[in-house]
Amino acid sequence: MKILVVDDEKKIADALAQRLGLRGFDAEPVYDGTSALSQLRRDIFDGVILDLRLPDIDGIEILKQTKGVSPDIKIVILSGHGNEQDFNKCLELGAVACFHKPANILKLIEALMGSSHEKTSASLRKD
């Protein structure tokens, strides 16, 4: 599975991508919205792990655009800042799951692999 990891914190994006790699995913880290969009245009990805707070473009905007281009892509929101309203909005816009940082990697993977298009329930569950 090809996963795009979008987070403005380089250390997080890199580590997460590497860990996913060790688990059999083909993960690529990017650090801002523009790069994310251009990568998504260049390649076909099966899933995205997306941070809401990005330096250039709002995460929600990325979500909208990506879902617009590839409606089947599995987008998992991973954010340090989001509140309930934001997460609900993401789910409505088509995110598969929303997590607060720090998140358990197994849960992330579970969401990415999750039985097709089944939206997991909102964010505030305990990880």
């Binding site: 914190e9 997460l16 590497q18 340090g80 940082k101 720090p102 998140a103 990697i105």
Partner: peptide
């Protein structure tokens, strides 16, 4: 604010374990 550095620790420690 803390969530981000926590995430850094989380992922890096996790990676270390991996």
């Amino acid at each position: 604010e803390i969530n981000n550095p926590l995430a850094v620790i989380n992922e890096n420690a996790g990676l270390l374990k991996d």
